[in-house]
Design a protein around this nucleic acid. Sequence first.
DNA 1: AATAAATAGATGTTTAAACATCTTTTTACA
DNA 2: TGTAAAAAGATGTTTAAACATCTATTTATT
Lengths: 149, 149
Amino acid sequence: MTIEEEIKQTKFKSAHHKAVLNLLFTASWIQNKQKEYFEPFGVTCQQYNILRILRGKHPEPISAVEIKSRMLDKHSDVSRLLDRLIGKKLVVKNKCPNDKRASNISIALSGMALLEKLDQAINNIDNQMLKLSKEESKQLSDLLDKGRG
Amino acid sequence: MTIEEEIKQTKFKSAHHKAVLNLLFTASWIQNKQKEYFEPFGVTCQQYNILRILRGKHPEPISAVEIKSRMLDKHSDVSRLLDRLIGKKLVVKNKCPNDKRASNISIALSGMALLEKLDQAINNIDNQMLKLSKEESKQLSDLLDKGRG
DNA sequence: AATAAATAGATGTTTAAACATCTTTTTACA
DNA sequence: TGTAAAAAGATGTTTAAACATCTATTTATT
């Protein structure tokens, strides 16, 4: 289904504009798919994002600021997102000894276990998520990098 | 700035996965830019999206369901989005004479005027939004269409 | 025609996003 | 050293998103 069909629009002001609309539509489309997959596991996309970031550094703990700098959505409310993950015992927060303002955040064992289950699911759907060849995926990623210029 | 730099991640599970992350990041990046531009005009991205849809059909009125089918985010709460636009006098809602369930929604003159101002702004930033050539924009859009396959 | 199913949209409720502001601690620098 | 500026997070508040449910009307079925 082309973007024209998806949003029932045949004319676009420019190729630029069409690409922007398509990009926003596709991102929303992917997020809705991801949400469906994550829902049975009780986590949101943003929470998954944070867990992945923490695992990437595991077993080293990182600060909330560091997490924020690595997130896809740069305007995330990391403080309360972490509260929820801590409430679910997926993440552990400690005081940072060197800097009394900062916190040392790390992923809990249960968080690691959950991520493994999620990865399994994600791997299964990865090709559904974006049905592109390796080469096309690279091309897409490069165009996006270039587009943000 | 590459996606690697943007989210401080050097390794990706696959080209697919990197493309998905880049897509979600870039969409969030664009939406934040748009939000900044719209903010002084007192409308959100979703509200702008609805106004554009209504103008595309103007002077013919359309139903809320029709609007929803054309929106970028297919899970929008159109009913209350319209309430807000009506509250701002940008949109007019009437009963549909043929179908007592449905409504006839159209853009108000003040809505048209606002859109023109917004378009001005958008046109000015369009190239900032995605710094791609016409050909690259088309290529990007095609890849996205194919990716949703 | 009678009844079930589907459609259009409104509304209630819970949760999270958005945005600013505030506190504490650290850093900079005069 | 003392004071201002910056940084890390927490928190308060308003607004909107998410999700389900509900009502009214229309369409389909038999």
